[in-house]
Design a protein around this nucleic acid. Sequence first.
DNA 1: CTGAAAGCGCTTACAG
DNA 2: CTGAAAGCGCTTACAG
Lengths: 342, 342
Amino acid sequence: MVTLVDVARLAMVTTATVSNVINGKGAVSEKTRKRVEAAIQELGYRPNLVARGLARGRTNMLALVLHTLSNPFYSEFAEEVELIAWKRGYHVLLCTTLQKELTIPGHMLERLSSRLIDGLLLTSGTFSLKEAQQAMERGLAVVLYMDWEGADPEQIKQFPAVDFDLFSAGELAAAHLVELGHRRCAVILEMPNHLRRLNGFRAGLASAGIELDADSIQHCSKDTIQQGYQATTALLALPRRPTAIFASNDMLAIGALHAITDHELRVPDDISIVGLDDNLMASQVSPALTTIALPKHELAHIGIEMLQQAIEGEEPVGVHHHRLVQPHLVVRRSTAPPPPDV
Amino acid sequence: MVTLVDVARLAMVTTATVSNVINGKGAVSEKTRKRVEAAIQELGYRPNLVARGLARGRTNMLALVLHTLSNPFYSEFAEEVELIAWKRGYHVLLCTTLQKELTIPGHMLERLSSRLIDGLLLTSGTFSLKEAQQAMERGLAVVLYMDWEGADPEQIKQFPAVDFDLFSAGELAAAHLVELGHRRCAVILEMPNHLRRLNGFRAGLASAGIELDADSIQHCSKDTIQQGYQATTALLALPRRPTAIFASNDMLAIGALHAITDHELRVPDDISIVGLDDNLMASQVSPALTTIALPKHELAHIGIEMLQQAIEGEEPVGVHHHRLVQPHLVVRRSTAPPPPDV
DNA sequence: CTGAAAGCGCTTACAG
DNA sequence: CTGAAAGCGCTTACAG
C-alpha cells in the first residue's frame, strides 16, 4: 500500500505539504505542487479514507434509515438519496429496520453512533424520537425525513425535518375529482399514517360543499396491492357505489384498479381512481394512473442539504426549521367525468 | 467523547487491557475484566469504529453495487443483503450506478477502493470485469452476484461468484406448462440478458417434443410492466394464439396479465402465464401469478459468505469456485390447462 | 512557502 | 496476566 509518506519521500517534501496539495489548502508553490502531483501519479497513490476520517473526525458517510426497501416508494427514494449524497462526496450506508425488529432495539443505533457516520437520515417507523435524541447527544447530526406527523410536536421541534405537504396532496386529489364532476367519492387509505391525506381530501371536498360518508372510507394496514383490492371490494358492495376513489398510495390504487376490473366495471368509465405518490408503476399499469406526485428528488435534496448544514454545525441548535415539499397532480387515464346515468 | 484512555484510567489498567476485554482476546483476569466492564458502563464508552478500522486495517463495511433499486427484484435483494451483513457485523454501503453513467467511469471505483470498505458485492450491469480486477489489485475482496453469463468465462474465473441457475428456471417453467397440457407456448423476455432462461425453457419443451416457433418469442429491452404489455399484445395478434406465455421476469408477466385482460381474454382460462422471480407483487396481482421463484435470501447468504472468506483470505487466489442457487416453481392462479376448444 | 511534531483513538506484538 | 510502546495513515496548528 502506498501512503502519504511514500509520496512525500519521492517528491522530497514533508507529508504536511502533500496533504496540503491534495486538499487544496495552505499555500503551496506552483513548483512543488507539480512535483507532488507527479509523485502521486507515478505511485498511483490513493488517500486512505479511514485514516483521513480519524484525523478529521469526519468520515463523509451518512446512514439512511428506512423501514423497508420493499415498497417502491422507498427504494426509489433511496436511490435518489444515494445519488445526491454521492455528488456531494458522501457515501450512504443503508439501514433497514423491518426485519430486525426482534433484535435488541437500540443496538443498531449504537453501532451507527460509533463515529462511523457523520449524520443520520431518519424516516418514520424506524427509530423512536427518543432514540434519535440519544444519537444527537452522541454527536450525530440527524434529519427527519417523512411522515412524522403522528409524533409529539414538541419533540419534533428538536430536529431539522423535511416532509411532503400531504394535506395539500389530499386537497389536490379532491379538487381534481370535483372539477370532473364527481360528488360521490370514496377513500381507501393506510391508517393511522395517512391521516393528513384524508384531512386534506376532506377539506378539498368540503370547499365544494361535498361531504365524505363514514362508510366510504376504507382503512388498510399496509400499502399493498392486495389491501387496496380488498378495500375496494368492500366499497363496491356499498348500496350507493362511489363514482371516484382516492387511494392514499399508488399500491392501494393499483389494487383498486384490479378489483374494479375483476368486478366487470371499467376505469375510468364507471369509476375514477386517483392515487398518490407517482411511483414507477403508476405510469405502467393499464389504464395509466392519475396520481398526486410526491417530488422525491426534491425531498431527498433538501434533506441532504439540511443534514450537511447540521453536520457542519451551521444550524443553530434548538431552532430547527421544518420544510414542506409541495406535491402536484399528474393526470393520466384513470380519471374521467362520472357516468351520466348515476 | 470518551475514549479507551478514559476507560483505562478509570479502571486503572492500560489501554491494551481494555482493548483485550472489549475484543475478548488475550487472557484477562476475572477481576480486572469486571473492573474494566464497570468502567465502560459508567462512562458509557463506545469504541470509535474509525480508529479501530485504521488500526486493524479492516472496517467491517461492504459495498453492494447495483444497477438500480427501482426494480423490486433488486430492492428486495438489497434489503436481504443488508440484513445478513448486519447479522455478521458488517455495514453495507449502497452504490447505484444507473443514474451516474454520465460521470467519469471508474471514479466511483476509486472512492470505493480507498480502504473504506473491505469488500465489494458486484452485480452485473455495473462495473466491468476489468474494473473489478483493478479493485482486487488494490486489495479489495470482490464477489460477483448474478447475471454475468454474457462475460468472458476466462475472466469470470478470476472471481468468486454466485448466481441463480436460470437455465433450470426456464426448464421448470416449461415442465409446468407441459404438464398442464400446453403445446402452443410463447415467451416474452428481456434480451440479451435472459438468454439462459430462454435456452432452459426451450430445452424443457424439447424434452416433451415441443418446438418454440420463432414468432412466438418476443424481445423486450427492459423489465417493465409496459414492455410486457406491448410484447403480449404482439403475441395476441398472432394467427395461432398461444395458450401459455412464459415471461422471463415478473414485471413482464404482470404486463402480460394486463394486456390479456384488456383484450377481453381471461387468465388462466384462455391463456396461462408463468413469471420468473417471485417478487412481492407476484402474489398480489389478480389472478396471483404462478412463477419460478429465485431464492434471493439464499443467494444473498452465499454471496456474503464467499465475500467474507475472500476478505479473510481463506480463498486460494485464482481458484475460485462458482455456485448456483436452484430456483423452484410456485403455483398460484395464473396457470391452468389450455382451453378445450383449441 | 515548507518542515518538524503532535494528535486522532484504536490494536498488536513484545517484555516482564 | 498486565504494561510500555510502536504503529495504522492521515491532518493540523505552529515555527521558521
